[in-house]
Design a protein around this nucleic acid. Sequence first.
DNA 1: TATCTTGAAGAAATCGGTTTCGCCTATTAT
DNA 2: ATAATAGGCGAAACCGATTTCTTCAAGATA
Lengths: 345, 345
Amino acid sequence: MGKERVSIYRIAEEAGVSPATVSRVLTGNANVSDEKRMRVEELIQKYDFRPNAMARGLSSTQSKIIGLLVPDIRNPFFAMMAVECERAASNKGYILLVSNSMSNMELEEYHLQKMFEQRVDALILMGGKVDELVSDEEYVEKMNQISDSIPVVITGKLDGSDCYQVNIDEAQATDRLMEYLISNGHRKICIMGGRKDVNSTYAKRIRYRSNLRKYGIPIQAEYIVETQGYSLECGYEAMNNLFDSNLELPSAVIAINDFTALGIVQSIRQHSYRIPEDISVVSFDNTFIADTCTPRLTSIGYNYDLFGDTLVETAISAIEGNNPPRLQLIPPELVIRESCRNIMQ
Amino acid sequence: MGKERVSIYRIAEEAGVSPATVSRVLTGNANVSDEKRMRVEELIQKYDFRPNAMARGLSSTQSKIIGLLVPDIRNPFFAMMAVECERAASNKGYILLVSNSMSNMELEEYHLQKMFEQRVDALILMGGKVDELVSDEEYVEKMNQISDSIPVVITGKLDGSDCYQVNIDEAQATDRLMEYLISNGHRKICIMGGRKDVNSTYAKRIRYRSNLRKYGIPIQAEYIVETQGYSLECGYEAMNNLFDSNLELPSAVIAINDFTALGIVQSIRQHSYRIPEDISVVSFDNTFIADTCTPRLTSIGYNYDLFGDTLVETAISAIEGNNPPRLQLIPPELVIRESCRNIMQ
DNA sequence: TATCTTGAAGAAATCGGTTTCGCCTATTAT
DNA sequence: ATAATAGGCGAAACCGATTTCTTCAAGATA
């Protein structure tokens, strides 16, 4: 057991060349005579030799690893992003190292440390402190410090930071959703879920208001519903509360994400209303949940493929010293399913 | 920009000690005088110094990385496992490197290569070829080869392999599910989804049969329904087919996993039957899907916490040269929700 | 008192690659 | 014909840690 580990030296010796030449064959960034190249390649084949990434990284001062920090990979949205980023990274010869912060500052810190120890070439940060509106001085400071040694790509706003931003176009997404609902005759529209101190939520509400204004629909404050989190339970409770109030029921509810939508749907059902006949429900994100629940949800998502590509390519571009754009927007994609009714018919 | 990277040498110089001493402070496996230790620790603090994992790994021939290969992290089951394994690995000072094979042999091979290049200390394999019943000679050979240089932990059977096995106790899970259904008066029970050449599915069917036999219920071959995959669509189609056949409808359907259950539920609804009043549906795995769909599904899952711990601890134990058990079973946990009715009342 | 341990710490080798430097040879330009 | 350039390749330095040797001093044992 434990076969002798073959190294570049072993290959060099057997091929009758210097280790440098083997390295040249490996990296491909120097000329080697066809004859020697062949001999080396044969031996590489024979021993199924793979260069030690640690040694390679150490000497080249490039780990070829990109770190991705997400709050929780069990959230389908982040799982999706992880898969897309992995694909994009692999295509460029990079490895993606994913860690979960579990929305916990200490764990986040821990994983950032570990990633730094691995000397990741770049960092992609999704969610976490970054997504909250208040740019905690300290946090910005920290990000800038990291950003000082490696490129950091974030998906959210962080005022005063040197990070590259790749954002979902929340504004456009909200516009589309509102236009769709309004063109289907809805005027009593509720936007439910999320905290206003979270950037993306804040942006959506701003846009929600401006759309109502644009179409001359009065804004009703009670139709903007705050929840503490973004879970099914939050949606469920919020909708229950709406039922319990004396408020006139909305004809359509916009859920802040698919999870929340799930809770809203449950609440509506329990109150013996039908979807979409009595109340329409639409949501943000369009994860697989929207496609697999009953009824299937009309939801506005993003081109996740493109999102992943953009994140990774921005990171790599920055690693290579090119100057990728500081801010990029990912356009939304509305997917119409069965949870919204045209109430004019 | 780009602060000077502090290394052990820099620390050593400023502290007036040798690099070896700094290393001793870092690893903690050798004695250093309190005085020098303090001086070094202060400087580590001052520069926020973190040792370069590549250099450390290279010299210690331990990467402190455990590789986890899953088919697709977007599947909540694997997302769950990834989170649990990451937690367990972090607790032991290891990093978890997750990759997705996307059930594609070439991609699987690619990622295995990459992990080898990183010199992961151990490998945890979930799903993939490993889960198929037919132990392809070549595949076993390959696994044994890997297993020859580092510990490999798999969650499935692979006859003739040297890998460590940590299996879900499918047999016991099926027993529990069947006992529950039968004690609720069900006798026309259908088990739906999955391919018989997949180990875990095979094991479930074996047990399905033996349970029926045990309770003196005749086995009806048509109630054992094969599907090509494990998706929602597969469940949906399979259940539609059942409706289309002249077969007497079962009073309960066991779905091979939560996704399939979702499809089965959709089909049943579309045929205007109610769950659980007309047909009961239960499933394997108990991912969050079972808890968030309508109606919430009675499902048998596993102690994922324990599962993750066991996988990682087995790997680490093997890394350290201890001799962990070759085969371990994770007991199931039945979670009763609203999708199954007692038909005797 | 002489000898044996044990603790502390530096020098230097090592891990396995990449990269710089310099040398030699074969073209190509002048 | 000669200088300039480029290709091929080995020697050796280097990346940043760990670890093995050694040395030396101090405390324990005979």
